[in-house]
């Protein structure tokens, strides 16, 4: 974990729902895809947590959806604005378990960490396949970024207006992956876990107080006892998860 001041590089729309925010500064605390950062927003007491989409030596990017007041404020951020950010939070995905043919599954804003994960798996010589799920054609985001990496994601939309009609699990049934990595709404994660024959890891969301393990605000019960989503997660092994009804 590191605390630092970052400068907004740009804040551009990817779709009507999602924007990508690039923040320039010391990204050295970010070690693995699936880790997250926490932004201090002026006028808001609590920080806001976001998965790292991708990063390099000059900074990192996040992809966010406007769901409330904090993310609404973020939409107005402009190039040159400065933000206090905690970086290098959470455990991140374990790349060593990928096997030869891992599949990366993202839904909605959960597509974000899959980009950085795909890039690093490719660097390690794996050939990841990618499934991205959205509501409708205009929601589709990051497709070009994946293509630039040389992977050709399978897109699913609920209404069939782009790619396959249906859920990410409909695309998953065709594949026989060695391992899965998933991020998205909890209902999607559960469906993925239930329909996968292979082992996998998933990134979870929780209301957070601190984001770094001090307040016990984000606890989730797992098969190995209570865990802090912010510190012991946000990535958990499929076998550890206790699904809540």
């Amino acid at each position: 974990m590191k605390q630092g001041v970052f400068t907004v590089g740009d804040n551009a729309p990817l779709s009507p729902r999602l924007k990508r925010l690039r923040l320039l500064g010391d990204s050295s605390a970010i070690a693995r895809p699936g880790q997250f950062v926490s932004l201090a927003l002026p006028g808001f007491f609590l920080r806001r947590p976001f998965s790292v989409c991708d990063w390099d030596a000059s900074g990192f990017s996040i992809v966010y959806e406007q769901v409330g007041k904090g993310t609404d404020y973020m939409r107005s951020l402009r190039t040159g604005d400065r933000l206090d950010v905690l970086t290098g939070l959470g455990n991140g995905f374990d790349l060593s378990r990928a096997g030869n043919a891992p599949v990366l599954i993202g839904g909605g804003s959960g597509v974000s960490p899959m980009l950085g994960l795909a890039r690093r798996l490719l660097t390690e010589g794996r050939s990841p396949r990618v499934i991205l799920g959205f509501g409708t054609r205009e929601d589709v985001a990051l497709l070009e970024d994946f293509r630039l990496l040389g992977v050709c994601p399978t897109i699913t939309t609920l209404d069939g207006s782009f790619g396959l009609r249906g859920l990410v699990t409909d695309a998953l049934e065709e594949l026989q992956p060695s391992f899965f990595y998933a991020c998205g709404p909890e209902a999607m994660l559960r469906a993925v876990a239930e329909c996968s024959a292979c082992d996998g890891q998933m990134s979870f969301d929780a209301r957070m107080g601190c984001g770094f393990g001090a307040c016990m605000g984000c606890t989730r019960m797992t098969r190995s006892g209570p865990k802090r989503v912010c510190r012991d997660g946000p990535v958990f092994d499929r076998g550890e998860i206790v699904w809540e009804d």
């Binding site: 808001f44 007491f45 209301r207 107080g209 307040c215 016990m216 605000g217 606890t219 209570p226």
Partner: peptide, 18 residues
């Protein structure tokens, strides 16, 4: 103690609830 069910955290003007 496991504590209370989640969400356990909420925001307030100039503060937070836990």
């Amino acid at each position: 103690r496991f504590g209370n069910p989640t969400p356990r955290i909420a925001e307030a003007p100039a503060g937070m609830l836990n």
